Simulated assay, not measured.
Amino acid sequence: MLQTVMEQMALATFNPNDSELLKKMVECMGDSQGMVRLSLAETLGSIGKPATPFLVEA
């Protein structure tokens, strides 16, 4: 999933209004692999404001 999101962001095709995807990304922050969590945190940071409500809820 993270790879797909990163590709979409690189191609400027990412939809920041896709609430289901943002919710899944935040849920994946519980992954046991530190590098996955770091990549997700950086990606969510790049997405910015649209990800905030999901992060606050988590």
Rank of each mutant, 00 (worst) to 15 (best):
P53H: 05
S46V: 05
L55R: 04
M6S: 11
P53V: 04
A12P: 01
T52Y: 06
L11M: 15
L11T: 13
Q33H: 11
N15M: 03
P50E: 06
V56W: 07
M9K: 08
L11I: 02
S32E: 11
K49M: 08
L22T: 06
V36A: 05
M29P: 04
A58N: 10
A41P: 06
V5T: 08
L40H: 05
P50G: 02
S19A: 10
L21M: 14
A10M: 06
S46R: 14
G48H: 02
P16G: 03
P53A: 08
A58W: 12
G45Q: 07
L11K: 11
S46E: 12
K23R: 14
M6F: 02
M9W: 00
D31W: 01
L2R: 10
L22H: 01
M6W: 01
G30M: 07
T43L: 04
M1R: 09
L44A: 01
A10E: 15
V56R: 13
S39I: 05
P16H: 06
S39F: 04
V5R: 01
A58H: 11
Q33M: 09
M29Y: 00
K23P: 00
L2D: 12
P16I: 05
R37D: 02
M9G: 01
F14D: 05
F14Q: 01
L55W: 06
V36W: 02
E57M: 08
R37V: 13
K24E: 15
M29H: 02
Q33S: 09
K23D: 15
S39A: 15
P50K: 02
L38H: 12
T43F: 03
E57A: 14
A10K: 14
V26D: 08
S32V: 09
M1I: 05
L22I: 06
K24T: 10
A10T: 11
L2T: 11
G45I: 04
C28A: 12
T52I: 15
Q3R: 13
P16K: 03
G34D: 07
E7A: 12
S39G: 15
I47E: 03
A51K: 05
S19N: 14
F54R: 02
M6K: 14
A10P: 00
P50D: 03
G30H: 11
L55P: 10
V56F: 09
M9P: 03
N17W: 09
S39C: 12
T13A: 04
T4S: 11
S39K: 11
L40V: 12
E27I: 03
M9T: 03
K24W: 07
K24G: 06
N17D: 14
M9H: 00
T13G: 00
L21I: 04
Q33L: 09
L11W: 10
F14T: 04
S19P: 03
M35W: 09
S46M: 11
G30L: 07
L38I: 09
L2C: 08
G48P: 06
E27K: 14
D31F: 02
M1A: 12
M25T: 00
M29R: 13
N15W: 01
G34E: 08
L40E: 04
E42G: 08
M29S: 10
F54C: 01
M29E: 09
K24L: 10
A58Y: 11
F54Q: 00
T4A: 12
M35E: 15
V5P: 07
F14I: 07
L55S: 03
D18A: 09
V26E: 01
V5G: 07
T13K: 11
N15G: 02
I47V: 14
S32M: 08
P53N: 07
G48S: 02
S32A: 10
P16N: 03
L44W: 05
A51M: 03
